[in-house]
């Protein structure tokens, strides 16, 4: 899941994972942001979660990486001065975190345990850094066990079974970022966009509704400001229809449903096929 901050990437990730479970598939969800947003999305949605979530904080990623790839016997957190260096390097030095995270994702995909690996990716351009991390690693580290991993990691990233789900909302700035991100994913990465999801489509207001709204405003009803905002949001979203279509032939439009945003995505997806890739 990729997209601007606040458009509902975690919500869509939770919905995709939940839908996979309902289809009888074995699924794991990875919170690559490491902030716990994916768990929060599930709690907020009130769904009875039936899939595992791995939350990749920087420290957890490092320990996992050393354990999985290098069979390193000691957790670096136990070597005190070193732990501080690793903390510094992994939180402040650019690139380290991306490599650790893509390594974990690759490991889960290759394990063969899962039918679907759903990744809640970091906001906006950071997803490009994540997808190109194996290339960067190959440039920086020519030999050694790290270098050996870059080959198959790059294959997974470029695989047809891996796809980016681009999430946006029908608002000007979010669409602009989605357009820019789509262009960057096309030109800078080997992964393709499999689906575009326009989240939180406001309720469509028909002419009768607009007349009621006008009346409420004219009569100074307490409902006036709300009604005119609802109409204005519908108009703004409708005005973006062409830009949405240009992003993808037929993006999945998800109605705004504040009480159950995850359910809204699942319902919208149920009408469409071909969303789930092996890693998305």
């Amino acid at each position: 899941m990729a997209g601007k901050g606040g458009v509902g990437r975690s919500t869509v990730a939770a919905a995709l994972a939940e839908r996979s479970v309902r289809l009888g598939r074995r699924v794991i969800a990875i919170d690559a942001v490491g902030s716990g947003g994916l768990s929060t999305a599930c709690v907020g949605a009130g769904i009875d979660r039936r899939f595992d979530i791995v939350t990749l904080t920087t420290r957890a990623s490092l320990d996992e990486y050393l354990r999985l790839y290098l069979r390193f016997p000691i957790s670096p957190s136990r070597l005190k001065p070193l732990a501080r260096l690793f903390d510094y390097v992994a939180t402040a030095a650019p690139g380290v975190r991306e490599i650790l995270v893509i390594g974990k994702i690759g490991h889960e995909v290759r394990s063969g345990v899962w039918d679907d690996v759903v990744v809640d990716a970091p906001a906006t351009g950071h997803v490009v850094e994540l997808l190109t991390a194996p290339d960067a690693l190959a440039t920086m580290v020519p030999t050694g066990p790290l270098a050996e991993q870059t080959g198959w990691l790059r294959e997974i990233v470029a695989s047809e079974q891996t796809g980016v789900v681009l999430v946006t909302v029908p608002e000007d700035l979010a669409l602009t970022e989605a357009e820019e991100l789509a262009a960057r994913i096309d030109t800078e990465t080997t992964t393709s966009i499999s689906t575009v999801i326009v989240n939180r489509m406001p309720a469509a207001v028909d002419p009768a509704g607009m007349a009621i709204a006008d009346h409420l405003v004219a009569t100074d009803s307490i409902l006036g400001p709300t009604a005119s905002l609802v109409v204005a949001r519908h108009r703004a979203a409708a005005g973006h229809a062409e830009r949405m279509a240009a992003l993808d032939g037929d993006p999945v439009r998800v109605e705004e449903r504040i009480s159950n945003p995850v359910g809204a995505v699942i319902d919208a997806l149920s009408a469409v096929d071909g969303v789930e890739g092996r890693a998305s």
């Binding site: 309720a203 509704g209 709300t226 609802v230 705004e256």
Partner: peptide
Amino acid sequence: KLGSADLAAAGSGGLAAGVWEMQR
């Protein structure tokens, strides 16, 4: 800010759905 009596004034179409969404 709004009570259910206020909300009824939005009718029953898309406008009402939008207003209810705002209220939620």
